[in-house]
């Protein structure tokens, strides 16, 4: 008898829960890449507050993080992402091309090529920089262990790779010399993780390697939160501008009836509140005047080049370097 009452009670509870959910306010799924966890945790709360103040509607925002390539593939395979906040435009291009979930011109729909904040690649070294690593050229010296993820699977690693390649091509003068440089560099890489977070773990928790090629925000996170006093950030004189774009997924928001919400969610990234949060979480805001000057002071000045000017866009960079038979495959061919 007792179990029966219990069963009935839980059934009633379940029914209430389900129907409550059905009448609940809307929710959004934001599919992002690895190192944005902390940023969006805070941003989602901030946005929910703003949205409630504006429309009295309570929204739930769900987050999904992972290597950029894996995330894009999940969306192509049917993960119902309302918005994408990925590491590089190539991955969103692929979603537009392969799954046709959003128009090919998606990048023109929001200001600054749909990029509300940018980042770059810096070096994270052990405290005091015992191996004296200052510039990209130091990475190929014998005896230096470099930690970087696999560029085939990680967006961050592709920026790492292109940044090193551009340095080599500029200082050594030819693509052939650059390839040789990259070959030497990857001889110094003892572990290839599949995502940026994995590489950070290898460097920080496992203590492997002398230098981690890292997203700037990931490097700041490492020195401030993961291992205070154990690491230094080294900013090379030149690096790559990592344009991390955002987009609304048209097919999904049409299906969910969440277009207004999704658009507001991304637009709010450009607002003073969004820009402040981006800078707080070590992303370079696209409108620095809106961010806290104290946060901005943390970003060192360096010469940043873009994928477009240096490599003729992502499509070409991907083909030349990361597709099968590209330069990354070539440098590993024995």
């Amino acid at each position: 008898m007792k179990t029966q009452t219990w069963l009935i009670r839980s059934l009633i509870a379940a029914t209430i829960l389900i129907s409550a959910n059905a009448f609940a306010d809307r929710s959004l799924l934001n599919v992002s890449y690895d190192p944005t966890r902390e940023l969006y945790q805070e941003y989602n709360q901030e946005f929910a507050k703003y949205w409630q103040g504006k429309t009295k509607e309570t929204v739930t925002i769900q987050q999904s993080h992972g290597g950029a390539g894996k995330q894009a593939r999940a969306v192509i395979d049917g993960l119902d992402a309302d918005v994408l906040t990925l590491a590089l435009s190539y991955d969103i291009d692929q979603i537009a091309k392969k799954a046709k979930l959003l128009p090919k011109e998606w990048q023109k729909r929001l200001p600054h090529n749909s990029t509300p904040y940018t980042s770059t690649i810096v070096f994270l070294v052990r405290k005091g920089n015992p191996k004296k690593i200052k510039d990209w050229g130091d990475l190929v010296k014998p005896g230096i262990a470099v930690i970087t993820p696999n560029p085939k699977t990680s967006g961050g690693a592709r920026y790492n790779y292109l940044a090193a390649w551009a340095y080599a091509e500029k200082t050594l003068g030819s693509p052939a010399a650059a390839k040789d440089f990259m070959k030497k560099l990857f001889k110094n890489v003892p572990v290839l993780d599949s995502g940026a977070r994995g590489a950070t773990t290898t460097f920080i928790q496992r203590g492997i390697g002398d230098v981690l090629l890292a997203w700037e925000n990931e490097a700041f996170l490492a020195i401030n939160e993961l291992g205070e006093g154990k690491f230094d950030i080294i900013v090379p004189p030149t690096s790559i501008l990592a344009e991390t774009p955002v987009a609304v997924v048209d097919n999904v928001v049409n299906k969910h009836g969440t277009r207004d919400l999704a658009e507001a969610y991304l637009n709010y990234l450009y607002s003073p509140a969004g820009q402040k949060l981006a800078a707080k979480h070590y992303y370079r805001p696209i409108s620095p005047e809106l961010a806290d000057p104290k946060d901005l002071a943390r970003f060192p000045k360096l010469h940043l080049f873009t994928v477009n000017e240096q490599f003729g866009g992502w499509e070409k960079a991907q083909k030349d370097h990361f597709d099968d038979g590209g330069s990354f495959d070539q440098i590993y061919t024995p």
Binding site: G67, N150, V191
Partner: peptide, 30 residues
């Protein structure tokens, strides 16, 4: 395996990892 292998091409890259890598490059057929 992927956590302990080091995953270096030609040295410690296993077949399942290569399959996942191909998938993440959208190379479903491969």
């Amino acid at each position: 395996v992927i956590f302990i292998a080091g995953n270096l091409p030609y040295v410690s890259e296993v077949i399942p990892l290569l399959i996942v890598t191909k998938l993440e490059q959208y190379d479903y057929a491969g």
